[in-house]
């Protein structure tokens, strides 16, 4: 019953706790003269939206949000970024385009590597916001995206609930050392601590190649058959965990909670092999990235936007399934 109640709540995007950042205004920002003139002349602004890996699954959805933002706000918005999570390539591209950009929205490959570049762009009088992945090391003006620690907490809570408060959980991630993974893992572990009957047995680093992800899960489950829950921290080990459960006929016996709405994940939620998945509304993030900068340049105060978490289970997954 408790699970059913939780599942009903899952129908909508749940806003997370608001960020502490206060509103910022362009009048308090040393905007570059060329941008001031452009805003005053009413010419379309050139906004650049840099994503940490334009070849990953979410890039098309974020790009669609950027295009919508550009159309709604009547600006030129370019979706840029490296193929593969290459921090150097992202830095080089931003440095090359700095003279042309009237605003930069960025999701960093690495907080440490991109932090100084963001501050350099700000110092040149160009406003910078972060989206999707925040960069707390920088002086960015605002952030549009999901609070990763909080989304981890939501995933942990879901796992605790579907396991009825007892069992052994294995956490899987395609990059255990990445900041987003560490943040989500922190939230997951915090939430699972509130269930005394649940033990986190390990964090499995699967790598990002689909074959390797599946093989790592397969080996780990054989190594520890007492695992009753697999909690994936991202898009890509979620369907692999669900597929392993389905193929090994462990549906219901081993619970899976994961992230995002890949086609395969949606189908595995429908078949009951994945109990719940958390969406991070990538299109909304792309839209907000552009919109925040345009609002800021047009003199409106802006502050961080929480794009929330969408929790999907068998009860509401049909809303997002392809017809």
């Amino acid at each position: 019953m408790k699970i059913a109640a939780l599942m009903v709540v899952a129908a909508t995007l749940l806003p997370l706790s608001a960020k502490a950042d206060g509103p910022v205004k362009v009048s308090d920002f040393p905007l570059a003269d060329r941008i001031k003139e452009k805003v005053a002349s009413g010419k379309p602004l050139d906004i650049y939206v840099s994503y940490h890996d334009v070849s990953n699954e979410f890039a098309p959805a974020i790009k669609a949000g950027v295009a919508k933002g550009a159309a709604d706000d009547k600006v030129n918005a370019q979706f840029i970024g490296p193929v593969g999570s290459d921090a150097n390539a992202q830095i080089n591209e931003i440095e090359t385009l700095m003279g042309k950009m009237d605003g930069l929205a960025i999701s960093s490959v690495s907080s440490d590597a991109l932090g100084p570049v963001i501050d350099r762009v700000l110092k040149a009088g160009i406003p910078v916001v972060t989206y999707n992945t925040d960069n707390p090391n920088s002086k960015r003006l605002a952030f549009a995206g999901q609070d990763l620690v909080q989304s981890g907490r939501e995933a942990g809570k879901l796992m605790g609930t579907v396991l009825d408060g007892k069992g052994k959980v294995m956490i899987t991630t395609i990059d255990a050392a990445a900041q987003w993974s560490l943040d989500r893992e922190k939230g997951v572990r915090e939430a699972l601590k509130t269930f005394p009957g649940i033990e986190v047995v390990k964090t499995l680093n699967t790598g990002s190649d689909p074959q390797k992800i599946y093989s790592e899960i397969e080996n780990a489950m054989l190594a520890d058959p007492s695992v009753t829950g697999i909690l994936s921290l991202e898009c890509c080990s979620t369907p692999a965990a669900g597929t392993w459960v389905q193929r090994n006929k462990k549906t219901g016996a081993i619970k899976v909670v994961g992230f995002d709405l890949l086609d395969q994940t949606v189908q595995l939620v429908q078949s009951g092999d994945i109990q719940a998945t958390i969406d991070q509304a990538p299109e909304k993030q792309g839209f907000e990235a552009v919109d925040l900068l345009v609002q800021f340049l047009n003199g409106k105060p802006i502050e961080s936007v929480d794009t929330g978490v969408g929790i999907y289970t068998k009860d509401n997954i049909d809303k997002v399934a392809k017809k």
Binding site: D53, S55, N56, G84, S208, D209, P210, D263
Partner: peptide, 18 residues
């Protein structure tokens, strides 16, 4: 064969560094 096994792949990740 890899796609037949999974059966899903993505151009940005499949076989990267293989």
């Amino acid at each position: 064969l890899s796609l037949a096994f999974l059966p899903s792949g993505q151009a940005g990740r499949t076989g990267l560094g293989l």
